[in-house]
Design a protein around this nucleic acid. Structure first.
Lengths: 242, 242
DNA sequence: CTCGTTTTTGACAGAATGTCAGAAATCTTC
DNA sequence: GAAGATTTCTGACATTCTGTCAAAAACGAG
């Protein structure tokens, strides 16, 4: 049957409502504060009903992560499809990454939580595969740009160093920086002036170190930053900065 | 009284034994697998006794993290006190960081867990301060080397960019990379050849990007790497590679 | 050996998870 | 629109863990 009965429609809606409530609870009081009881109570259902949708609370958490990760991949895809030389397109991905993490400040914490807190083992094979898929899609987009850079003659990688190795480097620095920013209050107290700016500069200098042309001395990537926000991500920009 | 009674001695010993067992449980089955029951059973005490030492399991986890973080700080201190130009000493810290994470593969996962999973709020003020202290000591060591580099004339930082910002960059990339390595099986399947090598190269190229002399084209930091392991961390090297 | 002190114990209350048989709602067919 | 088939929902239940605390046991000084 192609059209859904009202009931089926309601069930589908409920799934997203569960995720919404779960997200708020997770934001407010973390993993320990997220309980099936609380979700059920908030939505006015019994616990059993929630268990019809998700077999355990870990499934809810991973579902959450997959959703936002796919949004991220979409933003990356849009960034990758801009025009310009490869390193400029990579810079657009940097914009996407930063906007994304500002829209979903908790995403990396949740992702790390899934990977470390023995949550992984309790989730379904299906969702785990969805998560892997989303992840490798993201990597593939960035790796594609690196290959473009090489094909263009803008970049030559060292021996024993694959495009994926470079993607891993960029992944590390963003994952690490955004995790630290999200979880460590008082970076300023440690003497860090503007962590967001630091990440941008860091990535630019790293790519300079790999001699990826045009170097940041030849092209002002940080200035391009503002422009890209307006041109490629107007909707996200509005959500974030009014 | 200066000398401890046998009983007091036993209590003190027990504390470290609790942490040992907790560490194994944490390694084996993660945060969810760590239970006060299991620890008590394994050591042959009742739960109440364990609660005399640690008021909740979160306290055990943070105690764990503080212990290993202090070991890390010690290794950093040893690395920082080597001779050579500032960037070479920073390279020695890179060796320390990598050896450390290979000795304690779970450390960063635990650290992230503490920060994200609402564990932080359940821990005592005293331990939280100990954790902050350990962290800023580590940062201070690295920041000191950055300042040495500037004082030496080997490094000039961009405007609006403090030594601590550079430390934050290095912290991000190591934290991110080691977290990913520890939690993501099958990096090789993603096309990453040797993540450890990638991190080293990444950091060297980043510092090149900041024009920190001597550049990696002038001095072979990767070759120095092997040497430093033997000279500064023979004990750790033995533990790791037999 | 005795008595005050410290330490240990395990029963208990509370909170959350995940299950499942029966109740309720919904859909199908005539 | 009513009966019967099917799906969905419910809340009581068993279980597992946490954290507490009064009573019991072990300890140490004199």
């Amino acid at each position: 049957m192609s059209t859904l009965t009202p009931k089926q429609q309601e069930i589908r809606d409920r799934e997203t409502r569960i995720l919404e409530v779960a997200r708020r609870l997770l934001d407010d009081s973390g993993y320990l504060g997220l309980s099936m009881d609380a979700i059920a109570a908030e939505l006015g259902y019994s616990r059993g009903t929630i268990y019809n949708h998700f077999s355990c609370k870990e499934e809810i958490i991973i579902a959450q992560a997959i959703r936002t990760m796919n949004q991220r991949t979409n933003m990356f895809r849009r960034a990758a499809s801009t025009s310009g030389r490869p390193r400029q397109r990579l810079s657009a991905i940097g914009v996407a990454a930063e906007l994304f993490v500002r829209l979903h400040p908790d995403h990396f914490a949740v992702e790390q939580l899934i990977r470390s807190a023995s949550i992984w083992d309790k989730t379904s094979e299906k969702r785990r595969r969805a998560m892997h898929l989303a992840e490798s899609q993201c990597m593939a987009i960035v790796a594609g740009i690196v290959r473009d850079g090489i094909a263009h003659g803008d970049l030559t990688l060292p021996d024993q160093f694959s495009p994926e190795d470079l993607v891993f480097c960029l992944w590390s620095v963003t994952f690490g920086a955004y995790s630290i920013i999200a979880t460590s209050d008082g970076l300023e107290a440690h003497g860090v002036l503007d962590p967001w700016y630091a990440v941008r500069l860091n990535i630019n200098r790293t790519l300079d170190g790999f001699q990826w042309e045009p170097l940041s001395t030849e092209f002002d990537y940080l200035a391009q930053f503002e422009q890209l926000i307006h041109d490629v991500f107007p909707e996200e920009q509005r959500q974030l900065f009014g």
